[in-house]
Design a protein around this nucleic acid. Structure first.
Lengths: 237, 237
DNA sequence: CGAAGAAAAAAAATATATTGCTTATGAAAA
DNA sequence: TTTTCATAAGCAATATATTTTTTTTCTTCG
């Protein structure tokens, strides 16, 4: 007899435990660049800063290891996972492959809801400014979230939980690199690229949608690589 | 000085913390089916069983959450991640996609070392029996390891660290399901399937290699699904 | 007899103390 | 001046005790 088990998806209900709270704060701090790569994450320091017990910090850091946001060395604590150009290129390559698979499936299974969500996400994106702060330029957190939602909407019809999770994970990891492209953001019209993507999606033209999206990803990576070549942004190994 | 090595399969050198030890033991117990899906993992119980402190167990379990081997519910502890037919199908689909990408790249970048490693891995595989134990049939752990090495060898030339890591992770997750196909292993000649794969690899015939490998994966999945339909293998919620 | 509420037991989460590893600093010898 | 060894300090890792939360059971009332 076949028994289908419903997987309880109560992954996110308010941060109730201290460890979960610490996890979310530290994770966000790493993604936003508040903790720089290679920086040592001292447990006691974080514990007093977040006002939680050292055990909670320790657990939070442990959870970040499989996500590749921090690396741990037994008996020697935790450091923020390093960034490198080589890793960025590797990451981008993999993202392009995954994106292609997810988009192709999404188009195959597309329906009107899918189209509606894409249109809505793009519309929200247009209402956001990308960079805030004049002297100290920073990515607008609201834009970051909306942008993620836009790209998620495009692949949301792919019909695979795991593929969606993988897509989200890779997107998130690339977020760490995005902040580095701020200084050379000039020669680019991101809105046009997005509307091209939307056009292809609505036309259900899978191959051109994939091509356009991959170009979009590679353009960002190319800018970061160019920036890193000029300035010594990425710490040396 | 003579060193007596009594612990086999010590993978990485260096100091191992209790938490790391607990992590490895629990992980292996889940993968080998010693902890059944949906089973509650009581911290204190595991702590006395492994002779480590509860904190270490807690940390170990936390590290298994992102690997999707256990799920945690804040304030209510940890349980072994459930298995389901739907998830197996989802997992297999994703594996086929990833396998295709990795194999295509491997063939592109193939060299003589790659061929040699594949041949060596297949040869080792032939020397192993799949199932041990007569009345209580169990997968031969040596075969399991050799089989993993064989499939890793095929994609090892893909040139992407992340792709290799992803491949390994998906393979590992599917290992949890493999034990379920034991009872219906009959109508199959796995060695022939493997030698077909080797033939395609040495011929550098990427598309046929992919096709053959995907068939290989899907066959295993189909057997497990068939087994689950007849017997109530998958535990009930 | 069944349902609801309260109390007790069990287990998770947290805090604090202790141990032990790693590394840095300094002194002594080459 | 450089190298090496020893000692000390800092911090990760672990153990233990305490608090909080959840679950189960027992009692009481409908």
């Amino acid at each position: 007899m076949l028994q289908i088990i419903d997987i309880p998806a109560l992954e996110s209900e308010g941060p109730r435990s201290q460890a979960t709270l610490a996890y979310e704060v530290i994770r966000s701090d790493i993604l936003n660049g508040r903790h720089l790569p290679e920086r040592k994450l001292k447990i006691q320091e974080l514990a007093v800063e977040l006002d939680v017990s050292p055990g909670a910090v320790r657990e939070a850091l442990s959870r970040l290891v499989p996500e590749q946001l921090v690396v741990s060395r037994d008996q020697r604590g935790f450091v923020v996972a390093p960034l490198s150009i080589a890793d960025l290129i590797d990451l981008t390559d993999l993202r392009c492959e995954i994106e292609a698979v997810a988009l192709r499936r999404s188009v195959e299974r597309a329906d009107r809801d899918w189209e509606a969500n894409i249109l809505a996400a793009e519309h929200r994106l247009r209402g956001q400014v990308v960079v805030i702060g004049t002297d100290e330029p920073k990515l607008n957190p609201a834009w970051v979230q909306t942008h993620a939602a836009f790209h998620t909407a495009l692949v949301s019809a792919c019909g695979s939980r795991r593929l969606l999770a993988l897509h989200a994970q890779l997107y998130e990891q690339s977020e760490r690199y995005r902040g580095l492209s701020l200084h050379v953001e000039a020669p680019r019209n991101v809105s046009d690229e997005h509307s091209d993507i939307v056009k292809m999606a609505l036309a259900r033209d899978a191959e051109n949608l994939i091509r356009t999206t991959i170009e979009h990803l590679r353009k960002t990576t190319a800018l970061i690589v160019a920036a890193a070549s000029k300035e010594a942004i990425v710490p040396s190994a």
